[in-house]
């Protein structure tokens, strides 16, 4: 089991794994902001919701960190949109965060497993 950096862990919890959510959604292909918001809502069955302010707060922060990269894309007959994709560093960060999260979940599971008499 990998050692969990406790400070990092705390921070992650507070964010509720929001970064993990966004990064994992951008892993498959580039997406624009509204698409990310819709996907999070859909895949969590409405449990997790972002509004514009909080989503773009996250996106700009991730972009500043260099984990995602935004690009204006113009498709025929449409207005241009800003698409985001994962960078190499972003992929590394996603892997790290997934690992931390999985460790956390496994730990919780072990603790909460019903005891055998």
């Amino acid at each position: 089991m990998s050692t969990i950096n406790s400070q990092k862990f705390d921070r992650e919890l507070k964010k509720g794994g929001a970064e993990l959510l966004v990064l994992s959604l951008l892993e498959a292909r580039p997406r624009h902001g509204y698409e990310v918001r819709k996907l999070i809502e859909a895949r969590s069955d409405g449990v997790l919701k972002f509004n514009a302010a909080s989503l773009y707060l996250l996106l700009y922060r991730l972009e500043k960190r260099g984990w995602i990269e935004g690009r204006w894309v113009e498709k025929a007959g449409q207005r241009r949109r800003r698409f985001y994709k994962l960078t190499k560093d972003g992929k590394k960060a996603l892997a790290a965060q997934r690992s931390i999260w999985e460790s956390f979940v496994a730990a919780i599971n072990r603790v909460t497993r019903p005891e055998n008499a």
Binding site: N51, A53, S54, L57, R61, K64
Partner: peptide
């Protein structure tokens, strides 16, 4: 409009960035 709730945090973050 409710999507812009919490935009002051966004503004603050942008200012910091």
């Amino acid at each position: 409009l409710a999507e812009l709730r919490g935009s002051e945090f966004l503004a603050r973050e942008l200012r910091r960035m």
